[in-house]
């Protein structure tokens, strides 16, 4: 798990110059799991909350799907920023550029996870099985 998330996060931003070990052990796994969990919840909320509970089919448009995906990305951005700052016990005034790179990267991964979960769960949604596109349904 730790190796997986380390590979994922260091792929684009590299390792932290001073606290790489701490971040690899404590920050990457928790942020990664939390991002997966939050994204899963948001996907379930979109497909089975907003698009299955009510008779009204108001949200089964790509625009709404993108909206939920962006909200999820912002949440994941904030979670990542907060987690890395807390992990290294750094005050807001002393945030390093590395923290922001990491948060942005996490937001991008959340978009990827959102798309992945959408492909898995959209099939059983009442109103939105064709959002954001028809594939893999016939």
């Amino acid at each position: 798990m730790q190796e997986f998330f380390t590979f994922l996060y260091e792929l684009f931003i590299g390792e932290h110059p001073n606290e790489a070990a701490l971040i690899r052990n404590e920050v990457f796994p928790s942020v990664g799991l939390l991002t997966l969990f939050i994204t899963l919840l948001m996907v379930l909320l979109y497909y089975y909350g907003m698009n299955s509970l009510s008779t009204r089919a108001r949200f089964n448009y790509t625009g709404y799907w993108i909206g939920v995906m962006l909200v999820n990305a912002i949440i994941c951005f904030v979670v990542a920023l907060n987690k890395i700052a807390n992990g290294l016990e750094v005050h807001f005034d002393d945030y390093e550029p590395y923290f922001y790179y990491f948060a942005v990267e996490n937001a991008f991964y959340s978009i990827f996870f959102f798309l992945l979960f959408s492909l898995i769960f959209k099939t059983w949604s009442k109103h939105a099985p064709y959002v954001p596109f028809k594939f893999p349904m016939r």
Binding site: S54, T55, R56, A57, R58, K126, H127
Partner: peptide, 10 residues
Amino acid sequence: FTYLDGIFTN
């Protein structure tokens, strides 16, 4: 219409 669409889908 979104409500009617929902009925048709159901």
